[in-house]
Write a protein that binds this DNA or RNA. Structure first.
Lengths: 277, 277
DNA sequence: GTTTTTCATGAATCCTCGG
DNA sequence: TCCGAGGATTCATGAAAAA
């Protein structure tokens, strides 16, 4: 019997509970197979924006035009998507599940590739935004939601975690549905740099990721995020008593995430009632 | 100059405003190219149900297990999907738009193929159900929505219809968003056979299809439905002053749709105030 | 100090027509 | 096909500024 089957978490120790700077394919290749309980992935969306967008008040929308969201074609994006999803599937336990978030720009590519790789959908979940950006030109419906895909490793996989009763309790005693309502990540939660600018263009709401962690993992489970950004998944894991593996390529995001997690740790070690005592 | 460019609607006369019994690929092949303003499609969902679903009270859920929803594999479903979407694209005007509704079983295949065929998304819209069927086993989130894809024929297509102000008015003076709230089609609206059983397993709410027709077509435009079922799209077109082309393969659905449209016509010709006079 | 007003901003595939 | 003119176009939130 391989050691990885006896004590998989031992093998993960070098990667656990820290932000790993690197390309997710490189890092995932080093991780032992079948070792992770839950994956949450917020990959590049391949937005394909064509020109500047001007508000009616003539201000310019600060669009997502980062280098990491540029792909030459759908074929290019598909190759990228199939590669990281296959790598995720290898490190996922047979009882593990995977979540991916996206918009219409990419989610139909992702969903199709998930099925082609043998993943089996458990649900698609809609994040309905209280406060989305309007459609300024009045030429389409307000794009007021994003889509989350939740799947297990194979159609015949068994023993996946779904904390049904916890979700029911969070939903006022009724079954949690596939439509989830959260505001955008703004205000104090949104990480800002020294210049006052947002650090990451697409930081996700912590409450959204926390619900995912609570729904589909157990205490001390290992949660992996291959596109960790500023570490929202890591914070969600920490706050809910899970371990995490967070991979991020951009040094600026890694630095911000490390600071955020240090703040989170000290906040946990010095709870409010300790002040003034 | 071809006749079709002078008076395209003349060429459509044999197919207009009736339920055409036949396979949609056969019928679409006969229609002139570039002649249709709007397409609404509710294709088979490829549900892949594995076994009977039993409610907690041991009653059996009447699932969609019709022959027309059986496909051997994703590849099989993809071929079918690519074929009818390509046929729709041919008959669609360059300024026309197309809607497809589906669930996670099929919508990621459909969305990906739409993009591969050159269609360009305008929005994805979520139909949020007020009264979905619960998840009886308590192993997943309540599947409380379906997804609609709205796209134009190509990225560089111009002049597509979107009745922005009408939608805004329908939404209490604010931009219509991508999340739409409608109850399931039940009660008097749900067509029943002589045996009291529902005629069609997945009849869509008329209000949903009416919103689509009002949002993305103009008066007297031609609305095509390649999987017309019991004729909901035809009724939506009729009630909003549009022409329709409705294609349906199953004789039982055609018969029910024809009766429904006859009732609708007489209802329109004999409005309520005429009774008792 | 309190209330009101102004302003900034968010994963966005965001126009039409004539020359 | 490209370019320029004309014209129609925004919601919720929170912070900052003003009253």
């Amino acid at each position: 019997m391989a050691i990885s089957e006896i004590a998989p978490k031992q093998n993960l120790r070098p990667w656990l509970d820290r932000i790993i700077r690197g390309d997710c394919l490189d890092v995932l290749a080093q991780l032992p197979a079948g070792s992770v309980d839950l994956i949450f992935a917020d990959p590049p969306y391949n937005l394909q924006l064509r020109q500047e967008l001007i508000r009616p008040d003539t201000s310019v929308v600060d669009a997502v035009d980062d280098e990491w969201d540029q792909f030459k074609s759908f074929a290019d994006y598909d190759r990228f998507t199939a590669a990281w999803l296959a790598a995720c599937r290898r490190v996922l336990k047979d009882t593990g599940t995977l979540w991916v978030i996206g918009t219409y720009h990419n989610i139909y590519r992702v969903g199709s590739i998930l099925q082609d790789l043998g993943f089996w959908f458990l649900n698609d979940v809609i994040w309905v935004k209280n406060n989305p950006m309007p459609n300024f030109r009045g030429v389409r419906f307000t794009n007021a939601h994003e889509t989350l895909l939740w799947c297990k490793k194979a159609a015949d996989a068994h023993g996946c975690t779904f904390n049904y009763q916890d979700m029911k309790a969070e939903n006022g005693g009724k079954q949690m549905r596939s439509d989830w309502y959260f505001p955008l990540c703004t205000g104090a939660e949104r990480l800002k740099g020294r210049d006052g600018e947002k650090v990451h263009p697409t930081q996700k709401p912590l409450a959204l990721v926390e619900r995912i962690v609570r729904a589909s993992s157990q205490a001390d489970d290992v949660v992996l995020d291959p596109f960790a950004g500023v570490g929202t998944t890591a914070v969600a894991a920490l706050r809910n008593g899970r371990r995490y593996i967070a991979i991020e390529r951009e040094p600026a995001y890694v630095e911000a995430a490390e600071q955020r997690l240090a703040d989170e740790q000290s906040r946990r070690e010095l709870p409010l009632f300790a002040f003034g005592s």
